[in-house]
Design a protein around this nucleic acid. Structure first.
Lengths: 242, 242
DNA sequence: TCATAGACAAAAGTATGACATTAAAAAACC
DNA sequence: GGTTTTTTAATGTCATACTTTTGTCTATGA
C-alpha cells in the first residue's frame, strides 16, 4: 500500500487553480469578465469569502483586475511582457531592500542585456521604432533636470530599444532592471549628468537608426560605463534600502 | 485651490503597504512572526477580513508564509534570489501560455545570460563551486533518461554556474528562464540527446574548473547551439501553451 | 520513567449575513 | 437634448460564529 503524501489542499487553493486553469487555457479571453463572486461561490459550492481569497490571489498574480461598482467585476487581464516587467521590477526591489542582492549585481546584468539589445535593435529596428526613439529623444532634450517625467523618459528610451530588438522577454527584463536602478540613479541628477546622458542617448540612437550594430553597441557600452563611473551605487544604495 | 485627485485607497491596501513597509524596513526580521490576525485587526482598527486580505497579498508576493495551527501565524520569509527566480519563472510561464511571448525569445535571452555567466564563473569560481559542479555531473552521469530527477539536475547545473559567477540576480534569471524552457525540452528526451548533453556539460565544467574563460564560454555556446538545433521549440510550444 | 493518548488552546481557514462604497446605467427633470 | 438624480449591480468591509490544523500540556498506564 503506497499512498502518495498529498499536502492539504485548502478550499481557497482548489478554487484558485481551477480559475487559473480556466483563464490560462483561454476559456476566458483577455478582457472577459468572469462571473460575479456570488455566482462563483454558488457554482463552486463554497462561501463568498473563499472565492474572494482565490480571486485576490489571482489579482496579485496579475491574472485579473477587480473593478467595483455596477458593470464591474473580475476581468481577465492582458498578461503581456509589460506587466511581466512591472511585477519583476517590484520583486527585484523587494529583494534589494532585504539586502539579499546588490546594486552592482543588477547593474552588471543590465549590461549583459542592454549591449546585445542595442546591437539587435540596430539590426531589426522598424520605421516605427525609429520614430519612437526620435520622439523620446526630442522630449528628453526639452525637459529640465527637476522634471518628474525625467526618469520615465529615460526608462522609455531603454525599453524602446529592447522592444526594437523584437524580443519581448528582453524588453521586460530591461524594463524591470532599469526601473529598479533609476530609483537610485535619479536621486540627485545634476544638469551636467543630464546633458551627458542625452548626448550618449543620441549616439546610441544614431547607431541604431543607421543600422550600425557595432556603433550602437559601443555607444551603449560607453553610456553604461559613464553611469557606473558616477559611483552613485555605493552611497545611495544605503539610503534606499534603509 | 488645487487638490490633486488621489485614487481611492482601499483599507486593505493601506494595511498592506504598512505591513510591507514594516517588513522591508527590517522592523520584522527574516523568520520573525508577525502578530496574529486578531491582534493586527485591533491595532489597525479594521476587521479581521481586511487584515487577511492584506496578508494574503503579501503572501502571494512572497514576503510572508502563513502557517495554520497553534504556534502558527504569518512569518517573514527569506526574500532571496531563489524565491525571486521561482516567482519570475511562474510569471514567464503564464505569459507564455497567453501567447504573448515566444519560446524563441526566451531561448535567446537565455543565451545572452548564460554565455557571460559561464565566462564569469570561470573567473570567479571558488573551491566550493567546483565541488558542486562535480557533484552535479556525477549524478547526471548515473541517472537514466526516464528519471524524473533529470530536469532538476539539469537546472541545478546551469544555476550552479550562474551562482559561481557571484551574481545572484544573474542566477535567479538563469534559473527562471531554464525552469520554463525545460518543461518543453524534457518532454521527449532520447538517450542520445541525454548523452550529448552530459558530454557538453562536462566540457563546460572543465572550462570553468580550469579557469579558462574562453573555453567555458565556447562550450556553453556549443551546448546552447545544440539545444536550439533540436528544433523542439516550434512543435512543442503548441502542446504546452494549448 | 517514559511513551502514549486524550484534552486543551491558539491560530489560521471557512461560512454567513449584513452593511458600505463605488460606478455604471437608467430614469427623471428641466 | 443634455443634465441631474435615482436605481442597481457589483466589489469592499464588517461582525460573529464555526471548522480545521497543530502545538502543548496532562493524565494514564506499562
Amino acid at each position: 500500500m503506497s499512498f502518495k503524501p498529498v499536502p492539504v489542499r485548502r478550499a481557497r487553493e482548489q478554487v484558485e487553480v481551477q480559475l487559473r486553469e480556466a483563464i490560462l487555457s483561454g476559456e476566458f479571453a483577455e478582457g472577459d469578465r468572469l462571473p460575479s463572486e456570488l455566482e462563483l461561490a454558488e457554482s463552486f459550492g463554497v462561501s463568498r469569502t473563499t472565492v474572494r481569497e482565490a480571486l485576490g490571489s489571482l489579482a496579485s498574480a496579475g491574472l485579473i483586475t477587480k473593478i467595483p461598482g455596477a458593470g464591474g467585476g473580475s476581468f481577465v487581464r492582458v498578461v503581456d511582457h509589460e506587466s511581466l516587467g512591472l511585477s519583476l521590477g517590484q520583486s527585484i526591489e523587494d529583494t534589494l531592500k532585504f539586502g539579499n542582492i546588490s546594486f552592482e549585481e543588477i547593474a552588471h546584468v543590465r549590461r549583459l542585456l542592454e549591449v546585445p539589445s542595442a546591437r539587435a535593435a540596430a539590426r531589426k529596428r522598424t520605421e516605427a521604432d525609429i520614430e519612437t526613439l526620435r520622439g523620446i529623444i526630442d522630449r528628453q532634450k526639452e525637459i529640465t533636470v527637476e522634471d518628474p517625467e525625467g526618469p520615465k523618459i529615460d526608462s522609455a528610451f531603454h525599453t524602446a530599444i529592447a522592444e526594437a530588438s523584437q524580443n519581448r522577454v528582453l524588453a521586460s527584463l530591461v524594463f524591470a532592471l532599469h526601473s529598479v536602478i533609476r530609483q537610485v540613479l535619479f536621486l540627485n541628477m545634476s544638469p551636467q549628468v543630464a546633458g551627458a546622458t542625452v548626448r550618449q542617448h543620441i549616439a546610441i540612437a544614431r547607431g541604431i537608426i543607421n543600422g550600425d550594430e557595432e556603433e550602437a553597441a559601443r555607444a551603449m557600452e560607453e553610456h553604461l560605463d559613464y553611469l557606473d563611473k558616477l559611483q552613485v551605487w555605493r552611497e545611495k544604495s544605503k539610503d534606499v534600502s534603509a
